[in-house]
Simulated scan of single mutants.
Amino acid sequence: MQVYHLDLHELPLFQGVPAAEVEQFIAATGAKIKRVSRGARILDAYKENHNIGVIVEGEAQVLAEDRFGNENVSHNLERGAMLGSTSAIMPQVPYDMAIEALTDVLVLWIPYQALLTAGPKLGRTHGLVMKNLLEAFCRKNVLMMQKIKILSQKTLRERLILYLLYKEQRQGKARVHVPGRVQLAKELECNRSALTREISSMQTEGLLHTGEDWMELDAVKIAAMD
């Protein structure tokens, strides 16, 4: 698949790397872009994987899966998010996370071993990509800590407010994109009916404004709650 029209240089992994050098990186590492249909698995839990993936288009979700087939939604992945890095870098550790496409998804797959050995060919470009890769790992740790903080809140209202505040930080705006109610309830680990009631209550109190796929907290009223 041709990559010139996908603006790969805008992805966090290639921050600071000119578009022409991104093309050189792809050629040197043998990276490939593949399409995954909505509802299909991008990665399966406990399966061998040798590539680091980057979402170029679309949205996916991370599912924590145990050996009995039970699944829990961890978090969503959007353009620029990385996947498969743990199983590619540490194949000796069983990885219990699956990735499922919520929309049609384009994924850039970078062979991990080729990434390690591409330094002499790529020089400065390789250093920038490795720096960005380390920063991505740190961001994943931040997301995990945020998830723990959200689920540790005492009430569903507090969970939802903190969830949306973190969304504001990541998306850089007050009106944030959110998943549907079923997916949102899974992320907040609550009953969908209870979530619907809480959203309705917050709307009535003027704390929350919602649309088909977005939510926006009333900053003044939320601040007054502190």
Score class of each variant (00 low, 15 high):
1 M>S: 15
6 L>M: 07
16 G>L: 14
19 A>R: 10
19 A>L: 05
21 E>H: 12
21 E>A: 11
25 F>Q: 06
25 F>S: 01
31 A>Y: 05
33 I>E: 03
38 R>S: 08
44 D>R: 10
50 H>C: 15
55 I>W: 01
57 E>N: 03
60 A>V: 00
61 Q>E: 15
64 A>C: 03
68 F>T: 14
74 S>K: 02
76 N>P: 02
77 L>N: 07
79 R>V: 13
81 A>T: 02
87 S>E: 12
88 A>Y: 06
89 I>E: 09
89 I>Y: 02
89 I>R: 02
91 P>W: 12
94 P>M: 09
100 E>G: 01
103 T>A: 01
108 L>F: 04
113 Q>A: 09
119 G>W: 07
120 P>V: 04
123 G>H: 00
124 R>A: 05
124 R>D: 09
126 H>S: 05
130 M>G: 00
131 K>E: 15
132 N>L: 06
138 C>P: 00
143 L>E: 11
145 M>Q: 11
147 K>C: 08
150 I>G: 04
152 S>F: 02
157 R>Q: 10
161 I>H: 03
167 K>Q: 14
167 K>V: 07
168 E>N: 10
170 R>W: 15
171 Q>G: 04
173 K>V: 06
175 R>E: 11
177 H>R: 13
178 V>W: 01
182 V>Q: 10
186 K>W: 12
192 R>S: 11
193 S>V: 13
195 L>T: 09
199 I>F: 03
208 L>I: 10
210 T>M: 07
216 E>V: 00
221 K>F: 05
222 I>T: 07
223 A>Q: 10
224 A>Y: 10
